[in-house]
Design a protein around this nucleic acid. Sequence first.
DNA 1: ACGCTCACATACTACTTGGTATGTTTTTTG
DNA 2: CAAAAAACATACCAAGTAGTATGTGAGCGT
Lengths: 213, 213
Amino acid sequence: MSSEKNPLSPRIDKTGNIDILIAAAECFMEQGYHATSIDDVARRLGATKGRIYHYYRSKTELFFDVHREGMRRNFEAVTPVMKGPEPAARRLSAMFRQHALSMMENLALEAVVVQGVEMHRFGATTPEQRRTLAELMTVRNDFESLFKRVAYEGVEDGSIRTSDVSVAVKVALGAINWLSIWYRPRPAETRDDREILADKIVDSIMQGLNAPD
Amino acid sequence: MSSEKNPLSPRIDKTGNIDILIAAAECFMEQGYHATSIDDVARRLGATKGRIYHYYRSKTELFFDVHREGMRRNFEAVTPVMKGPEPAARRLSAMFRQHALSMMENLALEAVVVQGVEMHRFGATTPEQRRTLAELMTVRNDFESLFKRVAYEGVEDGSIRTSDVSVAVKVALGAINWLSIWYRPRPAETRDDREILADKIVDSIMQGLNAPD
DNA sequence: ACGCTCACATACTACTTGGTATGTTTTTTG
DNA sequence: CAAAAAACATACCAAGTAGTATGTGAGCGT
């Protein structure tokens, strides 16, 4: 099974150039895609353009691979908890929780994913880039569909109540993705701290703000 | 009362250059701030750079004024419904609803507000720009504080339940702001359609996803 | 030890773009 | 109605940047 076939695997292959993806993600997060020059990324790597263009044919391709790696980690975090014997509401909670944690622990990558969604109107010049962009959007929709499916199960098994599954899922994912805007790890933060925050977020999403009668 | 004193009023004054703000907002929404050239904005206006630089000394100032106008409309939408005799939970609902509607009806401006500030967090060059940026962040915080204050009232009067007011408000506002990513008006959309969507969103935020026992 | 390939660094170019300096036309004002 | 100012348009430049072409040293198979 070559990694070429799987649209979720960036071609980091055997080479350890994941460093490039991380450095690029950090730059993109801090300054945005267009404000980041290839030299900026290279400087953060302690290298020069040569290294980056050795692995990526263009800045756009670099961005795409950062996006791919971010989405890959999203799936990696969520899929293990989406199936099971529990009622769908509990599984959905767990998925939200995992996604929130993944958001915090891969902040730079996920910030690029979030930012990349806005760039839907990207100046996708070449036909190949357009196809790649469409592919990324498909992956994004598939990710959202994971949540929708479990939410529908919840409506059927009675553990979930909502006026509109699609809207409710968009609301919940929006709330979590919004982490990339306001969340920044504090200096001596632990895994526990992040789990506490994730639990609060999931609680807000699942229980809402209205006090029970 | 000169509009110079009020940090929320862009200096659109008597001149009708609100057109410039709208055109800029639309460009920024579609391509992002850095990918948008002044010529792009001018082209959308059916004009040239000269017109824009006649009113704005730099691209950064233009961005700032777009942001100001977006925030001004946010306050305008929310403040009328935040006070009253009803329990805080109802007022908070109304605020969320108004904010969601404002989001949809000023999509371009609000998209810039949402995606804008964090892109500039690191790039503010001149001291004056840094001060303006700090001012905008203050306005942003003030807006969030509006919601927090009413949410606290709700905790005290018993109409709201949450494990953490600050997090709950960020979750709710994130959900609404996320509209700027996925919401696009359909061709023959009416005000009613938008109100229905807003109600669904508010319902998700206030009631959560868990079915009542 | 020799060639060959990989993994970069260096040097350079073509093009974009923010900003300016300077016209030109319309509106306002005295 | 003349003159001044406002409201633009035109022409231009300096700076930054994506991408390329080429150099170079280290490893590696033979």
